[in-house]
Structures are given as structure tokens and as C-alpha cells.
């Protein structure tokens, strides 16, 4: 599965399970947040990624981080 900031690129190159990331210089973080908040954000993204690999899909699917 692919955690990608620029989802259209990920779709173009053919990734099947895609989770949108935060920003190019910090796909799994956000330096504007506190350490704790940032950890929570990163954890949510990784948990979404793990949900993606346990989900059956037939075609390219973007799993939004909730």
C-alpha cells in the first residue's frame, strides 16, 4: 500500500491501496502540532494504512484518514 502526498501521482503509477498523506516535506507528521498531537496524527495515518491492507478491493481505492 502507498502513503502518498500527491494522490494523483500514486494513481497514475498504479498503486492499488492509497492513503493520502499530510504534505510533501512531512507526509506523516505536522511540525505545527505538539509532539503528542503529531504522534496521534501519524498513528491515524498508519492505522488507516493497515486497514487498507486488510480490506478487499477490486480496483484502485483511496482510503481517507478519518
Amino acid at each position: 500500500m502507498h502513503i502518498a502526498t500527491v494522490v494523483p501521482i500514486s494513481q497514475t503509477v498504479g498503486a492499488n491501496r492509497i492513503v493520502p498523506a499530510v504534505a510533501i516535506p512531512y507526509p506523516l507528521g505536522d511540525p505545527r502540532l505538539t509532539k503528542e498531537e503529531e504522534y496521534k496524527l501519524r498513528r491515524k495515518i498508519v492505522e488507516t494504512a493497515l486497514k487498507a491492507v486488510t480490506t478487499h478491493i477490486d480496483t484502485q481505492t483511496v482510503f481517507e484518514v478519518k
Partner: peptide, 8 residues
């Protein structure tokens, strides 16, 4: 079993 690929 599963790979996570991250891109900037």
C-alpha cells in the same frame, strides 16, 4: 506479509 510505501 504487507508493505507500506511512503512518498514525500
Amino acid at each position: 506479509n504487507a508493505a507500506i510505501v511512503t512518498s514525500t
